[in-house]
Design a protein around this nucleic acid. Structure first.
Length: 280
DNA sequence: CGGCAAACCTGCGAGC
DNA sequence: TGCTCGCAGGTTTGCC
């Protein structure tokens, strides 16, 4: 379930657990995912100190003391687990296990193997293909109505698909695209370039609100995690429309019997959930 | 270049 | 109980 808020939550936990630690062992359990792991990955990581863990779009950036960055993308079903001390029995879909000097382990697990692990050389952080074309971070101050409108200008694709386009805005996935459009009252079928300035402002604000709320919800699980040894980035969150086809719209209080409630449509091969009455 | 569909994999729940 | 089908949070590629 990794969209921006989940990756943000995971990075927060990694920052606490791994910052300053020295990598002592790297268990590369498969040759790679869709993209092969970087060659000689284990040797390149060994004895490196982890300076920080941060997020860019949906990527986890593990910054190392020699200027390199271990870049992890979790794809559709990827997970990061932290394991503190003692032996660890690898699971079936554990692909990469990084063990630090104090026994802390970071495990990258991805059943569907849609994830990605890259190693960026010093200075490649802004030039590497994976990061170069990414749009602005929606939680940055500079991301506002005019900024969003500028990105959408002239786009004929529907606004839902535009929100998923990482080159336009970074980090929004299928869940939060639906949620943000619902909150903004914007019909997901609208052409991206057709939004008025006021609508773009409302949508930009909704994106921020929805993402921040999800991060906040993830943060509470993060706290639990530290005692529970569970999974990172896996939290209960209440969605207004996502996966709620046929349920009543929480915004306009319309009766399910009269309006049909939340609708599900397919756009660009992906499910979109919305309320046709509230979103215009 | 823009827009769209398909491909990449595995797991899970629904329905028969 | 066990099988098949459809669907799943993302990105890349290739085609028009």
């Amino acid at each position: 379930m990794p969209e921006l808020p989940e990756v943000e939550t995971i990075c927060g936990a990694l920052q606490i657990a791994l910052r300053g630690r020295i990598i002592k062992a790297v268990d590369v359990r498969h040759t790679g995912l869709r993209v092969p792991f970087p060659p000689k990955l284990a040797g390149k990581l060994k004895n490196r100190r982890i300076l920080s863990c941060a997020r860019r779009a949906k990527y986890i950036c593990v910054n190392l003391d020699n200027g390199q960055t271990l870049l992890i993308h979790l794809g559709m079903a990827g997970r990061i687990l932290l394991h503190h001390g003692g032996p660890y029995r690898p699971g079936k879909h554990d692909h990469l296990i990084v063990t630090c000097g104090d026994g802390t382990r970071m495990i990258m697990n991805d059943a569907r193997r849609f994830g990605m692990v890259l190693l960026l050389a010093d200075g490649e952080q802004n030039t590497h293909k994976a990061l170069r074309g990414l749009g602005p971070e929606p939680l940055e101050r500079s991301f506002n109505g005019p900024a969003l409108a500028a990105r959408l200008k002239g786009r004929k694709t529907c606004i839902k698909a535009a929100l998923l386009d990482q080159r336009l805005i970074a980090g929004i996935g299928n869940i939060y695209a639906s949620e943000a459009l619902f909150r903004a009252g914007t019909d997901p079928r609208r052409r991206a370039g057709s939004l008025t300035a006021a609508e773009a402002t409302r949508l930009a604000a909704s994106i921020k609100t929805v993402l921040r709320a999800a991060i906040k919800a993830g943060g509470s699980t993060l706290k639990d995690y530290r005692t529970a040894e569970g999974e990172l980035g896996y939290f209960q969150h209440h969605f207004a429309v996502y996966d709620r086809e046929g349920r009543a719209c929480p915004g306009c209080r319309c009766q399910v019997s009269r309006t049909g409630g939340i609708k599900r449509i397919v756009q660009g091969g992906r499910s979109t959930f919305f309320c046709p009455r509230k979103q215009t």
